[in-house]
Amino acid sequence: MGREAEEVREERVEVAPGVRLWYRAAGSGPAIVCQNGVGVTITFWEEFAERFARHGYTTVIWDYRGHGRSDEPREPNELTLDICVEDLAKVLDHAGIEKACLLGHSMGAQLGWEFYRKHPERVTGLVPTLGTYRNAVSSFYDMPRIAPKVFASASYVANSFPQFVKKLTGLAAWQPALSDLVVRKLEIVHPTLSPKGWLPPYLEHMAKLDPRVFFALAVAIKDHDASDLLPRIGVPTLVVAGERDFFCPPRVAKEMADLIPGAELLVIPGGSHAATIEQPDLFDLRLERFLEERVLARKQAEHA
């Protein structure tokens, strides 16, 4: 605990002709690979990955096509969960990782389900974090009738007038203090626990992101359903929820935990959709116990 990470590598891997994904691998030991939410770069995983690399793990963080330091997709509307699954497999191959515990924030949880569906032999554990397992749009603010209609309208505008939408998101990036005040007042993030430094880089990223790329993935997670898969999951699973997450409410997390054999559930008190950076110590302690008692213990038993 507390030692310096043994190695940090920033690499790019070609996943399609002319399309390379950026990733960062750090540390050594059992692998933890982190998946982002839609429209998000490594915001919610960067400091976590640094901490666990010092704690004796290999950690990998990466950006989807069109996000962060990765290349744009050949067509902005082409992205699907299946493409992201195979992109993740190529990142693992390039990083020399045979098996990993998959941590997924928001959309990253759904990516974890589908990666396990296609590559179960490469997964040592699953930690869906502040995410769902089906129709991510219907759970927004617990408005299953209204949210899909709002989403459909926003998707139409973004795909019809992408430059106009980019200008709107750019305005928010120019006013980070005001944007921070708004998201706290609306309790999109915890009013006092959410760190102040994360929002400006997120807004800058959103201002650069092609809205058509954003909504291609948003449609993918809206149409996604892993209900059939969850009862068949055979690796240790820790479901993480925020008590006040208005995007993926804790009742959805409980549904997931109930469907998965032997799954554990952590509900972060007062946690929003950014709960892991609001209360990182609580998240780290619970995750480390899960890794040691379930994931690593299972691996040791298989080799005994």
Results as ranks from 00 to 15, higher is better:
3 R>G: 10
9 R>V: 15
9 R>K: 15
13 V>G: 09
15 V>S: 14
17 P>R: 11
19 V>S: 14
20 R>P: 10
20 R>W: 11
21 L>R: 07
21 L>W: 11
22 W>M: 02
22 W>E: 07
26 A>C: 11
29 G>A: 12
30 P>K: 10
31 A>M: 02
32 I>G: 11
32 I>P: 08
35 Q>I: 07
38 V>M: 11
38 V>K: 02
47 E>C: 13
50 E>M: 00
57 Y>V: 09
60 V>K: 15
60 V>G: 14
61 I>N: 13
63 D>H: 01
63 D>R: 00
64 Y>L: 03
64 Y>K: 01
67 H>R: 00
68 G>L: 08
71 D>L: 01
72 E>I: 02
73 P>R: 11
75 E>F: 11
78 E>N: 05
84 C>S: 14
85 V>G: 11
86 E>A: 07
88 L>R: 09
97 I>R: 13
98 E>A: 13
99 K>T: 08
99 K>M: 04
100 A>S: 14
101 C>W: 01
103 L>N: 06
103 L>K: 07
104 G>T: 02
106 S>Q: 09
106 S>K: 08
107 M>S: 08
108 G>A: 08
109 A>N: 08
110 Q>P: 01
112 G>T: 12
113 W>L: 00
113 W>I: 00
115 F>Q: 10
117 R>Y: 08
122 R>V: 06
127 V>S: 13
130 L>P: 08
134 R>D: 11
136 A>P: 07
138 S>R: 10
139 S>F: 10
139 S>Q: 12
140 F>M: 13
141 Y>T: 14
142 D>T: 09
142 D>R: 11
144 P>M: 14
145 R>I: 01
148 P>A: 05
151 F>R: 11
154 A>E: 13
155 S>A: 15
155 S>K: 15
158 A>F: 05
158 A>G: 04
160 S>R: 15
162 P>N: 03
169 T>G: 02
169 T>H: 03
170 G>E: 02
175 Q>M: 13
177 A>N: 12
182 V>W: 12
186 L>W: 08
190 H>S: 02
191 P>I: 03
192 T>V: 14
193 L>E: 13
193 L>H: 13
194 S>C: 15
195 P>M: 08
197 G>M: 09
198 W>K: 11
205 H>V: 07
206 M>N: 15
207 A>H: 05
210 D>H: 01
214 F>P: 01
217 L>G: 04
218 A>R: 05
220 A>W: 01
222 K>I: 12
227 S>C: 03
228 D>E: 13
232 R>I: 07
232 R>D: 14
242 G>S: 07
246 F>W: 12
249 P>I: 01
257 A>N: 06
258 D>S: 04
262 G>T: 11
262 G>W: 12
271 G>F: 04
273 H>P: 03
273 H>L: 10
273 H>S: 09
275 A>T: 05
280 P>R: 08
281 D>F: 14
281 D>G: 14
283 F>S: 01
286 R>N: 12
287 L>R: 06
287 L>Q: 07
288 E>D: 13
289 R>T: 02
296 L>T: 04
299 K>P: 00
302 E>L: 10
303 H>C: 10
